[in-house]
Simulated scan of single mutants.
Amino acid sequence: MFTRSEARAAGVASRRLDAPDVEHLAFGVYRRVLTESDSSLHSAATWRCRQRDLARAIHRSLPEHAFFCGRTAAVLWNLPVPAGTDERVDVGATVPDRPPERAGIRGTRFQAHLASRTTLSGTPLIGAVDLWCTLGPRLADDDLVALGDAIVRRERIPGTQRLKRPPLADIEALEHAANAGRRAGIARLRRALQLLSPDSASAPETHLRLRCRDWGFPKPELNSDVLDADGRLLGCSDLVFRDYRVALEYEGDHHRVDARQWDRDIAKIRELTQAGWTVIRVTARMLYRDDFALRMAIEQALVQRGWVQQTPRPARVRHSVPYRLE
C-alpha cells in the first residue's frame, strides 16, 4: 500500500497508477493488485489481507469519533472470523455520533456502554471483549465459540505452566460484558459462554472439540502434555483422551510448509506411538468436508481402547466452513 506522493518520490509516473494492476483504495492511497500467478494465499487469507489494507487506507481519513468494529476489527486483532461476504470495512461510532457514510464502509452505531474503544498500534478499534459480544448475532455458533476461545486463550509453553503471552481477557470478562446491557443475540452469547475454553490453540481445534462434543465422545483435554512412564515429555497434543490413550493432532497448513514444525510433528507422533498411544491426524478436509469419516475413525480408536458409547450417536451435524489465519 502506498500514497500518490510516495509513488512520485519513487519515480512512478502518474499514468502508472491507472494501470489494471493498481487499485485505488481511498483518496490518494493505492496498492498493487496480486494476480493468481503471484499469490498462493487461501481465499480467506486474501480477504484478511485486503481488510487490513483497506483499514489502513481508510484510517487516514476517519473522524476522531470513529473506530473499526465487526469482522474488520477481528482481523486487526488477529482473531479468527470467517471471511465476509463482501469487502466493505466495518466502522463504528457511539451514540450520538455516526460512522462515516461512504462507499466501502459498513457503518454501525453502538451505545457507549456496549462498545469500549481502544487502540492497537495507533489504530482505533473496538475492544476485544465487546467485539465478541457485538459479533454474537453475526457468527455461527461454532465460530462464536472459536472467537471467544481465541480471546481467552492462555497459550502455554509445552512442558511448563509459563504462558507465551497473556490472554486478551478471561471468560469472566466476557460474561460481564455480555450481561452489561440489552444486547442483540444475548441468548446465543450465554450458550457460547458455557462452551469456552482458554486451552484451545486455534479455531479448527475449537471446531474439532465441538464436533467431539456433538458426537458424544468423552471430554478431551486440550493442548495437554503427554508423559511417558518415566515422566519424560513426549509432546503436547491438541486433543487428548487420556483414559483411552488416544490423541488427535490437527494438521494446519503451517505444519506442512514449516520444515521445523513438520520435523517436530513427526518426532512427536513417533514418540507417542512407541509409547502405546493411538494418534489420529486431522486435516481441514477431514474436519470440514468429510467429518463422518473422521467421526468413525475417532469412535473406532476409542472403542478399541475400551470406551463404551453411553448414548445413541446423534444425527450428523453440519458446521461452518474452514477459514485461516496467516
Rank of each mutant, 00 (worst) to 15 (best):
C69M: 00
A103F: 01
D90E: 14
L76M: 05
G104M: 05
F68G: 04
A74F: 00
A45P: 08
D90F: 12
H59K: 06
R50H: 14
V91C: 09
P96Q: 12
P63Q: 04
A103S: 07
R102T: 12
P82V: 12
D53M: 13
V89F: 11
T94G: 11
P80C: 13
F68W: 00
A74V: 02
T46F: 07
F68D: 05
F67A: 02
R102E: 12
H65S: 01
P63K: 07
R98F: 10
N78A: 10
R71W: 02
T85V: 14
E87P: 07
G70Q: 02
A57G: 05
I58E: 03
T46V: 14
L76A: 00
C69V: 06
P63R: 02
A55H: 01
L54Y: 01
R71C: 01
A44Y: 13
G84R: 10
S61W: 08
P100M: 09
R52A: 13
V81C: 10
L76P: 02
L79E: 06
D86F: 08
Q51V: 03
R48I: 07
F67N: 01
A103G: 12
A73T: 04
G92F: 15
E87D: 15
H59G: 05
V95S: 15
D53F: 07
A83F: 08
P82F: 11
V81I: 07
R98A: 15
P99K: 10
E64R: 12
V91Y: 09
A44S: 15
T85L: 13
T94P: 08
P99G: 05
L79V: 04
A66F: 04
E101R: 14
T94K: 14
A83S: 15
R52D: 06
W77A: 03
A73N: 03
W77N: 09
N78D: 14
E64P: 02
N78P: 01
T72P: 03
H59N: 15
D53E: 14
T85R: 15
A44V: 13
N78Q: 13
P63S: 02
P82N: 12
H59C: 04
V81R: 08
R52G: 08
A57V: 03
T46N: 10
R50D: 13
V91K: 11
D86E: 10
V75A: 02
V81Q: 07
S61Y: 06
P100A: 03
L54G: 03
F68L: 01
A83G: 05
A66P: 00
D86I: 10
G104F: 07
R50P: 03
P82W: 09
Q51P: 08
L76N: 00
D97Y: 11
H65F: 05
Q51G: 07
F68T: 00
C49V: 14
G70V: 01
D97S: 10
H65Y: 03
E87I: 15
V75R: 02
